[in-house]
Computed example of a mutant assay.
Amino acid sequence: MTRILIVDDQDEVRAGIRTMLQLDPGLVVAGDLSDGLQAIPFLRENPVDLVLMDIRMPGIDGVEATRRIRKEHSPEELRVMVLTTFDQDDIVLAALRAGANGFLSKTASPAELVGGIKEVVGGGGALSAAATAALIGHMTDSPPPVVDRELLLRFGALTPRERDVVVLIASGLGNDEIAAQMSVSPFTVKTHAVRAMTKVGARDRAQLVSFTFRAGLYP
């Protein structure tokens, strides 16, 4: 059973998310809060597996709330997925740097939301198409002035197939698209991606994309 905390300042949004999550018997809403400040003390008393975090809220925003959560809870202990209507690259990057594990739009369908939650809780990272485009756009517009040699050495441990998958992920393709291009199954693509993340020390798919660009491995 996956325990989830919803943090959003709009009552109707929290109610809508709760309704969507109730469609899956493996998900349970442990609580819903109207601002980020409440999340910190709540989590001290109520262990959950994942926080669904809004960005724009009174008090402190979702980025700062995520940053404070990370001071007390590691990514292995607690996952954070940002839900927002904003897909600008600065927000995506700020949320990921604060320790978020995924980034989905509030317009995501129930299936996309549940699928994203399961992906993130399982150790992966979910990024909406718009968030992926924003992240990749930022990296290509502002490439690192100096290649991170330490990261480049980590990528040297990848097999040729793992490296191919990583570069295609960094180009914005999903598992199904990569599978079709490489003539393998989506499960094989996911396996390569997970192994690559382990070898380079990326906590999720989003950080893997960031590491790829910082290592100078542009698609």
Score class of each variant (00 low, 15 high):
125 G>Q: 06
44 R>N: 14
7 V>E: 11
142 S>E: 14
196 A>H: 10
173 L>R: 13
83 L>K: 00
86 F>M: 09
196 A>M: 11
160 P>C: 05
187 F>P: 02
83 L>M: 07
8 D>G: 08
146 V>S: 01
158 L>I: 12
35 D>H: 13
49 D>T: 05
36 G>I: 07
156 G>V: 04
196 A>G: 07
17 I>S: 04
47 P>R: 10
92 V>M: 04
18 R>N: 08
51 V>D: 09
87 D>A: 11
175 N>I: 01
29 V>E: 05
142 S>Q: 14
56 R>K: 12
112 E>S: 08
171 S>E: 15
10 Q>S: 10
47 P>F: 03
121 V>M: 11
131 A>V: 05
34 S>K: 13
85 T>K: 05
49 D>H: 09
84 T>I: 01
94 A>G: 09
115 G>M: 02
44 R>I: 01
14 R>Y: 07
174 G>I: 14
124 G>H: 05
138 H>C: 04
63 V>M: 05
91 I>F: 15
130 A>K: 10
143 P>L: 01
163 R>N: 12
138 H>Y: 13
130 A>R: 13
35 D>S: 10
39 A>W: 08
30 A>N: 06
191 T>Y: 11
140 T>F: 02
138 H>W: 12
20 M>P: 00
65 A>G: 03
103 F>N: 03
94 A>V: 03
143 P>N: 02
186 P>K: 09
94 A>D: 11
212 T>H: 04
115 G>H: 00
151 L>C: 03
91 I>L: 14
19 T>Y: 11
184 V>M: 15
152 L>P: 02
152 L>I: 00
6 I>C: 04
201 G>Y: 00
8 D>E: 10
66 T>N: 00
189 V>H: 12
65 A>T: 07
160 P>K: 08
179 A>W: 08
131 A>E: 02
171 S>F: 01
63 V>W: 02
142 S>L: 14
107 T>F: 00
133 A>K: 12
39 A>N: 10
115 G>N: 01
46 N>A: 07
67 R>H: 09
23 L>Q: 15
13 V>W: 00
191 T>K: 15
108 A>C: 13
4 I>T: 09
13 V>E: 00
29 V>Y: 06
100 A>R: 04
106 K>I: 04
180 A>Q: 14
218 Y>I: 13
102 G>Y: 06
62 G>W: 03
82 V>W: 01
47 P>V: 04
178 I>K: 13
77 E>Y: 09
165 V>D: 05
127 L>N: 07
186 P>V: 08
77 E>S: 15
195 R>P: 09
85 T>A: 15
81 M>G: 03
36 G>P: 02
28 V>S: 15
91 I>C: 08
105 S>P: 04
213 F>M: 03
190 K>N: 15
19 T>A: 15
79 R>T: 00
64 E>C: 03
208 L>G: 04
151 L>S: 01
60 I>F: 09
49 D>S: 02
167 V>S: 11
3 R>T: 07
121 V>E: 12
214 R>Q: 13
76 E>D: 14
173 L>C: 01
93 L>V: 11
129 A>F: 02
36 G>F: 11
53 M>G: 02
108 A>I: 10
98 A>R: 04
16 G>T: 04
200 V>M: 01
